[in-house]
Simulated scan of single mutants.
Amino acid sequence: MTKYDKVFNSPKTSEESLSPEEAVAAIATVTAIADSMIEDVDAESLAGILWEFEVFEEYSEDEIAEIVDRLLAIAEEEGIGPLFNAAKVSLSEELVLDGFAAGVIVLLDDELAIAKPKQAYLKKLQAALDLEDEEAEEIIKEVIAAFKEAEEEEYADDDDDETVVIEDFSEQTYQSPLGNFTVPIPVDPQQGGRIQSQEGVVGFSDDIGTLLRIDYYPFPLEQLEELESVGQEEYLQTILVDKYVPQAIFANVPDASVEYTEYLENTLRGAYYVLIDMPKGSTISKQENNGTAIRLDAYRGLLTFISGEFLYIVSSQHSFLDGETPDSLEEEAEDIKESILEFVETIEFN
């Protein structure tokens, strides 16, 4: 009996019916469980991975999370073999490659490679889905290439941003296109000061490590009911920690982690603050001897609050130059929080 017989050689099939899209999610779920315990699987991270798939573009995050929870429950009650068999039966011909890609993504390590111990599982998954070697290799290459491309993008300022290099500060303030705020420009063109903007975002940065960014979203009235139901602290925490950080930071800096959180009840009528440790996640880089550029380590602070008819997320970073040692976590959290609050004080909300 081989290691993965429980997955690929089970005679049983789950009695639960799956849609073709759920079958893709089931393959990802089985792959996540194959070398671990069900209770060790991070359902939220798994749902986040699936949310990036085009096949789930019509699904909300909550719907995908519900699917993952249901699949984990099936695996716990019936076993991963019956779940895989149900997935294989339910997987449409058009989604076979997506199913294999879902398994590949789950197996990728931090170096965007598939560790040797995991390659045996992937070979068996390939065989179970009746894929030729060339097809499987092409999918693996495409998945890795997509992740590398995402890592190379500026998470705040991708190529679609409208980037303006500031050369003249005759206009001393920046005004939001929606007219909801104005703010004095906080960077100096002589230090490489620049503005990156796109719909709902403006970032101010320079060559010496400054990063001040404002994300802003119209606050729909229907959200008031949810806010009042769960309370402002929990609502802001959910927006920042459960939604914004995974999409804007974790998706681009895999090793990033939330290290500090704080609810500021008496600030801005209630605000939620987090500090993120971002190894090799700074927006500035250092040049290696071989000519390659490597991003510096950084701490990123984010503060979210509601003002008028908009929800804001204001952020700042501290990048660590060669030889620079971070202060204690508490000191870094406090220093970056104060820098954000000082910046927020300069913003005039309309």
Score class of each variant (00 low, 15 high):
Leu107Gly: 05
Lys116Thr: 12
Val164Thr: 12
Thr173Trp: 15
Phe84Asp: 02
Ile80Thr: 06
Glu63Arg: 12
Glu63Leu: 00
Glu132Met: 07
Pro189Asp: 06
Ile67Thr: 15
Val96Glu: 07
Asp157Ser: 14
Asp110Gln: 12
Gly179Ile: 02
Glu142Lys: 10
Asp158Arg: 04
Leu108Ser: 08
Glu154Cys: 07
Ser90Ala: 14
Leu178Ser: 09
Val143Gln: 08
Glu152Thr: 07
Gln175Lys: 13
Lys118Asn: 11
Ala150Met: 15
Val96Trp: 04
Phe181Gln: 07
Lys118Ser: 11
Leu122Pro: 11
Leu107Arg: 08
Ile144Glu: 12
Glu152His: 14
Ile80Trp: 05
Val143His: 11
Lys88His: 01
Val165Cys: 01
Ala75Tyr: 14
Ala120Asn: 09
Val165Asp: 08
Ile185Arg: 02
Val68Arg: 04
Gly179Glu: 05
Gly79Pro: 09
Ile80His: 05
Ile64Thr: 07
Ala65Phe: 14
Glu93Asn: 06
Asp133Val: 10
Ile166Thr: 08
Leu71Pro: 07
Glu171Asp: 08
Pro82Ile: 05
Pro184Leu: 06
Glu154Met: 08
Thr173Pro: 08
Asp110Ser: 11
Gln175Gly: 07
Gln175Trp: 02
Leu71Arg: 02
Glu171Tyr: 12
Glu162Asn: 08
Leu108Gly: 07
Phe147Ala: 05
Leu108Val: 03
Val165Phe: 09
Glu77Tyr: 08
Ile67Trp: 06
Leu131Thr: 03
Glu134Gly: 00
Ala156Leu: 11
Glu151Phe: 13
Ala87His: 00
Ala115Gln: 15
Lys116Tyr: 02
Ile64Asp: 01
Tyr121Ala: 02
Ser90Met: 10
Leu131Cys: 03
Ile144Asp: 06
Leu108Pro: 04
Glu142Cys: 04
Asn180Ser: 04
Ile74Phe: 12
Ile166Lys: 02
Leu125Cys: 03
Asp157Lys: 11
Ile74Leu: 12
Asp110His: 10
Leu129His: 03
Asp161Phe: 14
Gly99Thr: 05
Asp110Lys: 10
Ile105Glu: 11
Glu78Asp: 14
Leu131Ala: 05
Ser92Cys: 10
Ala87Val: 01
Lys141Pro: 01
Phe181Trp: 10
Val68Glu: 03
Ser92Asp: 15
Val68Ile: 15
Phe169Lys: 04
Ala156Arg: 03
Lys123Asp: 14
Asp133Pro: 10
Glu111Cys: 09
Ile64Ala: 04
Asp168Thr: 03
Ile144Asn: 13
